[in-house]
Design a protein around this nucleic acid. Structure first.
Length: 298
DNA sequence: CTCCAGGCATCTC
DNA sequence: GAGATGCATGGA
């Protein structure tokens, strides 16, 4: 991937972008802190910074940043070093994925902060994306740090210690409901160094999954989301209700256990299973109803 | 009013 | 192990 990168004022401008759609990438349920502006750009908070991103053809404009942050953070965050065209070519050999990819051809898998991803997906359980976003925003307002951009105030995601020192009242007022005790357990186990969240990269995927699942409220699905979206192990295939429906209806035409779905995906998509999962999830949400596939003419 | 949401813990067999 | 049930909260 070759890009021409230039800096003007507070903007970093990247020429030569391919396979990138902001809405598909930022609203496909892998992240929760981005909001669309009237001009189609997106403003969001990540890694203690607020930025605005805009795509104009093959030009990506990142505002409120600098070259060193682009190189150290945003290049990896938006996964700009990866050739998604090649991934899509390979996955498109499968007819179902070919359709799914056509529907979300600008999806990229973000490389997010591990702690934020862990808490976000703990909150995601038995919840809706709109509600998940609200709870995370509440938590950030209550326990994060204010940062300013264009006359607006944004809030960083709370640190581990912010959760540790917060009392139950604040957590409850953030409306995370029964998940509050899970968030506290996650923060405690990490703070006490029972789980070293910042060494996970060193271990193999199964070991990381076992470690994360020692946290109350973290099962296979949440663990796999953390591993895929923040550790970058692209062979994992998080199985949620939508993926389950998609695999059952689009591939197997019968009911199947979550474990068998993982075997199926691992066998079929190999080291690209994580990408396949993301395309399928985005497609299934709009094309697979509770029980059946919705036929739609083009 | 009832039902349910990018699951998981817990209990039962 | 597999199956059933409760869970905070708010929107449809």
């Amino acid at each position: 991937m070759k890009y021409l990168v230039e800096m003007t004022g507070t903007k970093v401008i990247v020429h030569g972008i391919r396979d990138f759609n902001l809405r598909e990438t930022l609203e496909c349920g892998q992240c929760f802190r981005w909001n669309e502006e009237k001009d189609g750009s997106y403003t969001g908070v990540a890694f203690d910074r607020v930025i605005n991103v805009k795509l104009d053809g093959d030009i990506l404009i990142i505002d409120n940043t600098n070259l060193s942050d682009f190189n150290d953070i945003w290049f990896d965050y938006f996964d700009l070093g990866r050739d998604y065209g090649r991934i899509k070519d390979i996955l498109s050999q499968d007819e179902v994925l070919k359709e799914a990819i056509k529907y979300g051809e600008g999806i990229r898998i973000l490389r997010q902060d591990t702690w934020e991803t862990l808490i976000s997906f703990i909150i995601s359980q038995n919840n809706r994306i709109s509600q998940i976003k609200k709870v995370i925003e509440n938590l950030s307002k209550a326990l994060g740090h204010p940062i300013y951009y264009k006359d607006s105030v944004y809030y960083t995601f709370p640190k581990i210690k912010d959760i540790i020192v917060s009392d139950a009242e604040i957590l409850n007022s953030s409306k995370c409901g029964f998940r509050a005790k899970y968030i506290i357990d996650a923060a405690s186990k990490i703070f006490d160094e029972e789980i070293n969240l910042f060494e996970l990269q060193l271990y193999d995927t199964d070991f990381i999954r076992d470690l994360l699942m020692r946290i109350k409220g973290v099962g296979e699905k949440v663990a796999d989301c953390v591993i895929l979206y923040s550790i970058g192990r692209y062979e994992v295939f998080p199985v949620d209700v939508w993926i389950k429906k998609a695999v059952e209806f689009l591939y197997l035409k019968k009911k199947i256990t979550n474990k068998d779905i993982q075997y199926f995906a691992k066998e079929k998509f190999r080291e690209l299973a994580g990408f396949a999962q993301q395309y399928l999830f985005y497609y299934a949400k709009d094309h697979v109803s509770k029980e059946k596939f919705i036929e739609r003419e083009k």
